[in-house]
Write a protein that binds this DNA or RNA. Structure first.
Lengths: 203, 203
DNA sequence: ACCTGAACACCGTTCAAGT
DNA sequence: ACCTGAACACCGTTCAAGT
């Protein structure tokens, strides 16, 4: 299963990340302690310091995996519908919400402000930018096909990002537990809201 | 300044909340410890337990003050423009973003998932609902004036909430530090995005 | 290189005791 | 009623020491 090559573990780095993510999703960020993570991985409570500068660095690495997932999901939309920018956009919004619902606590960790900008690693920033660039590309594709309103690409992308992000955060933090519980309802809501966002709210 | 009536403090409850909010906004939620809050308020580290069940209860009370501010801001929009639902909506979006930027760490605490649903007090839920109801009213006013698209009030409100909320969270968590730093830029962005949201993105 | 155990400062929480 | 000090279990981090 694991490599178990070297002195003790072989791939302690990833084992720690996996243990931390499991703890995070089960208990929330408040339930993650470095000592518990180490115990789950089967090493002493100081071993993690060989792989991460401190606790925040581990959490930042966890958030980074979330940004990687998000960036790759955005890029997959372009690949899956190379000729249809509107389908790219639709898939992107569904993928964003799905990731937030599938990994709610990682989403909170990415965007919930527990990690302050000072804690962000270079890699986290890089992957976060890559995710936004993926969305920018999708908007740019729509503009180049002549389908979108004549506004700055960045502004349209920021509007879409804000909307999808806001909905995802409200879901992952539990604020929509009454209005939208099951996945079917959420899919329908995303479609309906996406339609309004594209067509506009005013008559 | 304070009441200093009773045995020691008179209004320790509010003194603790004020100390906690100051610590929170200065250091982020990770920098808030009950012992430090007590020290700042000038009492022993066990005194807070006379006023709050535990640390999460103090944080929940802090988040509740944020929801109160938000709910009152929403309700003020209706009062300030009794005959103009579109102005109500515009003011609401600006107020929401302003609160998030003015109290970024409280916003993170309200929506960032540190407080799990199990930690929510009844009062927090009540004020959170009141804030959303305020937004619902603004949307309903727009619908009754015949200006909005023929969709469920809840869905339009959820779309607007998601958009404004997403933008606010991206701001308060520091993810837009490059794209939008000064207040003037943010005001312009909110107007531009609000315009697109109302008119639609598609040609 | 990689890991450990002891140690330190700090934290949340409880509880018997003081006024 | 309101507050305190001692105590306990837990935590993040450092460091000398082990293989």
């Amino acid at each position: 299963m694991a490599k178990t090559s070297g002195y003790h573990h072989g791939d302690l780095h990833n084992a720690l990340l996996a243990a931390a993510e499991a703890l995070l999703e089960k208990q929330g960020v408040g339930g993650v302690s470095l000592r518990e993570v180490a115990k789950t991985a089967g090493v002493s409570h100081t071993a993690p310091y060989r792989h991460f500068k401190d606790k925040n660095a581990l959490l930042a690495a966890l958030a980074t995996t979330g940004y990687v997932r998000l960036a790759e999901a955005m890029e997959a939309c372009v690949r899956d519908h190379p000729e249809d920018p509107l389908q790219q956009m639709s898939q992107a919004s569904h993928a964003y919400v799905e990731l937030a619902i599938g990994h709610p606590q990682v989403t909170n960790l990415m965007f919930g402000g527990v990690l302050q900008p000072a804690d962000w690693s270079d890699e986290l920033g890089k992957e976060s930018n890559r995710a936004f660039e993926g969305l920018l590309t999708i908007v740019r594709n729509g503009q180049e096909s002549g389908r979108y309103v004549d506004k700055e690409t960045r502004e349209i992308a920021l509007l879409v990002w804000s909307t999808v992000h806001g909905f995802s955060m409200l879901c992952s933090a539990g604020h929509l537990h009454e209005v939208a519980e099951d996945p079917r309802q959420i899919t329908a809501l995303v479609d309906s809201m996406g339609g309004m966002l594209m067509q506009g709210i005013l008559k």
